[in-house]
Structures are given as structure tokens and as C-alpha cells.
Design a protein around this nucleic acid. Structure first.
Lengths: 116, 116
DNA sequence: GTGATACATTGACAGATATCAATACATGAG
DNA sequence: CTCATGTATTGATATCTGTCAATGTATCAC
């Protein structure tokens, strides 16, 4: 028995060639830096990890506040940063909002770090 | 004909299990966030790319200032940030200092982003 | 409609960060 | 030792970022 993805997955276009393949241009560097910046915070990393390890790949925002030990507005802020960077997606379900990782986004970053 | 590595490569211990494998603890999250933060700047990304694409894998600091278009102290600062994060190594050679990427460090970050 | 619940936004503030000019330090040449 | 060169450090400043309390907004139950 197979389920459709819980959350709609946005299309992800690769930021650039791997760092080790060709010299990064200024524009690509800015874009890539923004994506890494999204992961450059311990709270956001824990959020991503919570989403990525959840079965179904999605978690209600209500279940994210307590595990990271920050206030609700702070968690909401971090989720927005992740969403703006394309690392997570969100979807309203009644009164709740569910968040899920965008595996393709992580894969794109992984590709940027690939060795020569 | 094979050469020894131009720069001594430090040992790199993996920060943590992949984000998608198990929930990231607070301490591991801090450590991993610091490493991603090193890559969360366009100038530093270009520096890493310049080093990674150079044959021999190392470049004189003197050849890094002009390509990134920032002042010498600024470039020196960014190189220090990268070195502190373990992403690059440096070695003095006479009056110059040569910098090189630490491929294992990039690989460790890549591993953290690996899918389930 | 009213009230309750879940999430997002605003505003304020402290701490971090990127940048450069000026200066210090280290190395090799003479 | 002295000087020139390459790199690092210091100090100052503007900008960005993480955080929370307070408030706003959307959805459901009634």
C-alpha cells in the first residue's frame, strides 16, 4: 500500500555546478550562501531533522515547539526562514499547519559539495 | 607519477548522523550549524571554490584577493573563518601562505545531508 | 454571530557579522 | 640590521540575526 506524498513537493532547480567543478560566480555564490545560511542555525537544523525523521515526512507545527525548546514565535520564524530558502514546505490542514522537508533541496546542496 | 598532497590534511571526525537518519541533538546541532555557517557567505563560497578547482588543490593567499574583489584584510578574515571551521588548511611557504580545501570536511557536511 | 485554538507578524533589543583603514607581525633580500 | 613584501590583527561602523512579548489573523466549534 502506497501513499501519495503528504505534502506537495515544489520543483527545485540546482543552484550551480559543484564548488569543486568550476569556479563559483558571484551571483551563484549569493544564492548558494542563502541556502546554506538556512542551515546555519542549530534550531533550524533540529527542525529539519525532526521533519526528515518523521514518518510521512511531515509534522504539525504544534509538535515542533516543545522539542526545540523555543517560543512559538521563534519556531514560526525559523520555519519561515527554512520555507523561504526552499528547504521545507508547508500546508494548512484545518487549524494546523504541517511542515515537511523538501528532499530535493537538500540533495541540491549535497551536489554543490560533491568532490571533483 | 604521484605527488604527496600539497598541504597536510587534518583528520576530520564526522559531526553526527545524517539529519534524516536520527533526530539531531542540541550539541550536534550547534557544531553542525557552525560548519554550515562557514559556507553561508558568498565570499567564502567563492574562496572554497577557487581552492577546490585549483590544480594541486592549493592557492597562495596573494592570488585570492583579486578574484573575490574584497580588501586583503577581509579575505584574510574569511580564510580564518574557514580554517577555524576546518574547511580549509593553511601552510606558510616563505613569505606566502598557501590555502587548500579539506575534502573530508566537505564530505562530512555532504553526509549530514544524505537522504534516508 | 462569539469564543477558543493554532499559527503568523510586529516591534524591540541584544548579540553576531562583514567590511575596511590602519597597524602589527613575519619572512626573505640586501 | 634594515628594508620591502605578504599576511594577520585591531578598531570602528553599519548591517544582519535570533529571541521573546504582544498582537494580529485564520479556522473550527458552538
Amino acid at each position: 500500500m502506497r501513499d501519495l506524498p503528504l505534502l506537495e513537493q515544489p520543483t527545485v532547480e540546482p543552484c550551480c555546478a559543484p564548488l569543486s567543478a568550476e569556479t563559483l560566480g558571484a551571483d551563484a555564490a549569493e544564492q548558494l550562501a542563502r541556502q546554506f545560511a538556512a542551515l546555519a542555525d542549530p534550531v533550524r537544523l533540529r527542525l529539519v531533522s525532526l521533519l526528515a525523521t518523521a514518518d510521512g515526512g511531515a509534522v504539525c507545527a504544534c509538535d515542533l515547539v516543545e522539542p526545540v525548546g523555543k517560543s512559538q514565535p521563534t519556531v514560526s520564524h525559523h520555519l519561515k526562514v527554512l520555507a523561504d530558502a526552499g528547504v521545507v514546505t508547508s500546508e494548512r490542514r484545518g487549524r494546523n499547519v504541517w511542515y515537511g522537508v523538501v528532499p530535493a533541496a537538500l540533495e541540491a546542496l549535497r551536489a554543490a559539495l560533491a568532490p571533483r
